[in-house]
């Protein structure tokens, strides 16, 4: 698998990361190196091996259905660039 410049630009846009035009080519080369390195894993025969879901032998911990959190709108909005009457205020987004 190989990434071209357009794909890198697309991925950057999806991730909302700004990449200058001049950086796209070098970044594609860098990512392709990483991809090639990862693709070595394809050489390992994994037939009949269960996919590993975690490095720890453990099951998903579950919580009981109790209300134990919340009630601090001030804390939640404390770091917001703008807030009003306990709402976050963001630039207009309307469809």
């Amino acid at each position: 698998m190989s990434l071209d410049k357009a794909t890198v630009a697309h991925v950057a846009k999806l991730a909302r990361i700004r990449v200058e035009e001049s950086d796209l080519e070098p970044m594609a080369a860098e990512l392709n190196n990483i991809m090639t390195w990862i693709e070595q894993l394809n050489e390992v025969d994994t037939d009949g091996v269960q996919p590993m879901t975690s490095v720890v032998e453990s099951v998903l911990r579950q919580r009981s259905d109790d209300i134990t959190d919340g009630g601090y709108a001030d804390k939640v909005t404390q770091n917001a660039p703008a807030s009003e009457a306990s709402y976050f205020v963001v630039p207009k987004v309307v469809e």
């Binding site: 109790d66 134990t68 959190d69 009630g71 709108a73 939640v76 909005t77 709402y87």
Partner: peptide, 18 residues
Amino acid sequence: SGAATAFGAEPNSQVSLV
């Protein structure tokens, strides 16, 4: 998370840090 789900509460009053 452990925050409440009830409809119609005060804004951001049923929000955990999660």
